[in-house]
Amino acid sequence: MSEMYIAKEKFPATVKQLMGRCRVYGPVFRGQYHEFAELKAAEDADMGYQNTRLSPKELFHPQSERMFTYSLDKSDSEAEILKEAPKDFSSRVILGIRPCDAKAFQLDDRNFDVDRFRDPWWVKRRESTTLVGLACNQPCASCFCTTVGTGPFDTGGLDVLLTDVGNGYVARSTSSKGDDLLQGMEGGEKVSSEAAQKVMDLKIKAEKQLGVQFDVSTLSEQQMLELFNASFWDDIQFSCINCGICTFLCPTCWCFDIQDEVHGNKGDRIRNWDSCMFPLFTLHGSGHNPRSQKLQRVRQRFMHKLKYYVDKYKDGVACVGCGRCVRFCPVNIDIRQVARLMSARCVCPA
């Protein structure tokens, strides 16, 4: 592990150094909210931000990604052959990502990078990216990372963690990629014992504030069918408008749909985000829809995150507690409430 202290006035210069080495993405304020964008100038990164409106999954799993292109022109010798669309896999740093969001990528690896399925673009992007996180000194009212096995200072998904200690940042590497990154940096100072202590204090304070908001440990013990048939779903689903915001904003919702779009003689095979909240998601070619009812769709989202995933991987829930779905569900469906109902030791009749 290597570490350094970077005074705030030197921070832009540090970012500039990085920008000289590779592509650097950071939290940029655009219009009404923050999003990760490639930095044009070091000052564009707003390290005082809370979190991005949309999760950074877009950086690895774009909402709409051209996979292949093809020609339908019969006179073309390569007609009807799928050709991989060009993509940029050059190395990059994502600066200021929150620990929960970085952790989410590890969770998503289970979908995109396992023996049975390996998504080459996801894998290449993951390999060429170094994640420089920013610890959460002041978590939101709707965050609950500490409840679901991560935390405001969790280094698990990161290569480097930055902590804002007032006049500067303490940077600590937490992986060999992170070591490499920090070792090449100039201008860093030694971390004073006061600064190191500050990091500890901030961590304890933030974690304490978040607390443990429900108990995930009982989820694995619940009977799946009992949960599936529980009467509380009727209550939970009422207000849902099936808008899909929760899934679009979520860093651990990875579902997609593949479509061909043809213009004249040219075609693209495109992969788009999809959502289990949409009726079309499960509509069969026959016209039958196994999840034709809203209740079934709402239940699916929560059962997937809090039960099916739990049982399948035996490694916690498929949620990192970023709170985006809580903050932006227009009708205030709160996954924490649902988790409380699901994890209650006895599933009482409502």
Partner: peptide
């Protein structure tokens, strides 16, 4: 009454 400040939930 909602679970977070400034939010309420439609309820039946």
């Amino acid at each position: 009454k909602g679970t977070i400040p400034l939010m309420n939930e439609p309820y039946l």
